[in-house]
Design a protein around this nucleic acid. Sequence first.
DNA 1: GTCTATAACAAGATAGAC
DNA 2: GTCTATCTTGTTATAGAC
Lengths: 263, 263
Amino acid sequence: MIINKNTVHVKYLCSRPGHNRLVAMSAPRTARERIRREVTGEILDVARRHLAERGAAALSLRSVARDLDMAPSALYRYFDGRDALLSALILDAYESLAADAERAGESARPAAPEGERWPAVPRALRGWALEHPHEWGLIFGAPVPGYQAPEATIEPYARIARALARPVAQAAAAGRLAVAPAAPEAHRSELAAAVAPVAEELFPDLPSGAVPSAVVVRLVEAFAAVVGVISLEVFGHWRNTILDPAALFEATVRDAGMTVGLR
Amino acid sequence: MIINKNTVHVKYLCSRPGHNRLVAMSAPRTARERIRREVTGEILDVARRHLAERGAAALSLRSVARDLDMAPSALYRYFDGRDALLSALILDAYESLAADAERAGESARPAAPEGERWPAVPRALRGWALEHPHEWGLIFGAPVPGYQAPEATIEPYARIARALARPVAQAAAAGRLAVAPAAPEAHRSELAAAVAPVAEELFPDLPSGAVPSAVVVRLVEAFAAVVGVISLEVFGHWRNTILDPAALFEATVRDAGMTVGLR
DNA sequence: GTCTATAACAAGATAGAC
DNA sequence: GTCTATCTTGTTATAGAC
C-alpha cells in the first residue's frame, strides 16, 4: 500500500465493520504521525463507503473530500491520487476477504471429516461477496487498467487459497484422500507441471508429492468453480434464471468437494 | 439497441473482424438512412476499437469524436450519450460471443459422441475471451451501475447457453446420457425447482423431464465452472501460478463434461 | 427535418504556489 | 492544509448548412 511514495506495511485488524479495516503496523511515534494515521483511516472509511454504495466507477476524490470537509487537493498529502486510493481499497478488500476465509476455515470443527469441513471456506467467500459485491468485483471482476495493486495482493490471495486447500491438506496428510475418479489428463506431466507452483504454495508443510498432482488440478478447478458460481450470482447473471442461488451454490460446493476427493 | 429513442432491431452479420459487427436489419430506404447507418457503424467501429485497446473505463465520447473528425455533440444524433454507446457495445459483445458459440457448436462433427463434441463451445468461449478480454469483462465482469443493457442481452445469452447445452440435449434424446454419479442434492425438489426455468429454456424441444433435473443442475455448474476458469485466466489471476492455462482449461472442460454425464 | 459545429457549463484529476 | 490554474470529460443550448 503506497502512501505518499512511502511504502507502509499494513495489516488487517479485525475491528468494527467499516471502521479502519486497514491500520498501519508500526506504532505511531509522534503526535503528527498519530493524526496522520487517523486521517488516513477516515479517508479510507469514507472511500470504502462510497465504493460499497456506488461502485468503483463512481469513486471520486472530490466527493470523498467533500464528505470529510477537506479540499480535494488535500487528499494528495495522503494518497498519490485516485489510482492510489483505489489501489488501497483493492488491497483492503483482499485482506478482508482473506481474513474471513481464514476465520471460517479455523472455526470449522477439527473432528469433523474433511468432506464436511470443506464447504466452510466457500460459504465464507460467498457470504463476503454478497455483503461486499463491489469489492468482490474489484478482486474477481475485470481488472481496471492501471488500478491493479501489484505485489501486495499476492499474500492475501495465497491465504485465501490456503484456507480453501486446508481440508485437502489434512485429508492427504491423514491418508483419507479418496482417489480422484477418472482423471486421465491429470496424469500427463504437462498438466502436473502447469500446477507445480500451486502445489508448492498450497501445501508447504507436506512433502512434495504427498498430494497427487491430479488432486491439485481438481482443487484449482474447484476454486475456479466456486469463484465462477459466486461471480455469476453476485454480478446478476442468475436473475430470472436460477431461482435459488443458495441451493445451486451448495450443490456446486458439494460436487466440487467430491471431485477433489474429499469424503 | 437504442438509437435516438427509436428502437431499431439489429442482427449480427458475420463480417470482417472489427467492421460493422452490428448492422440494422431492415434495408435502407432513403439515401439519408444509408448515410446514417454508415456513420452509426463507423462510430461503433471506433468505439469498439477504443474499448478493445484501453478498456471500458477509458471509453470517452470525445475521443471517439476526435477519431472521426466530428464534434462531440454530433454523436448525440446517433447515441443518447456515453451510456447508450457503451450499452450498444455491450449488446454487440453478447451478439458476437453468441455467434461464435453457435458456430462452434454447429461445426462439430454430428457423428462424434457427445463427450467429444462437448468441448467445442467452451473452447470457442475461451478463444473469444482471449481475443476480446475487455468485452469479456463487459459480459462476465462486474456490472457497471447504469450501463447494463437490459432486455436485449437476454436473447444472445440464451443462445450461448443453448449452444453449450446442445450435446446434452442430443445425448438425452438418444438415451446416451450417462447417469450422473452421486448427485443426492439434485434429487431434492428445491434444487430441481431452482433450475426449472433453465431446463425450460435449454431444452425447449424435449418433453419436460426428458433431462433429469440432476443433469440440469450439473450443466449449470459446468457453465459456471467454464466461465470461472476463463475469467480467472483472462482477468490475470493465473499469473505466476498456473503456467499452462490451456491445459488447465482442457482438464476443466473434460471434468465438467463427465460430471454432466457425457461420454 | 436533419445534421453539424461552436460555445458554454459542470464536474473531475492533478500540479504547483502559498 | 488551502487556493488557483490547467486539462479532460459529459452534456446541453444555439445557430447555421443541407
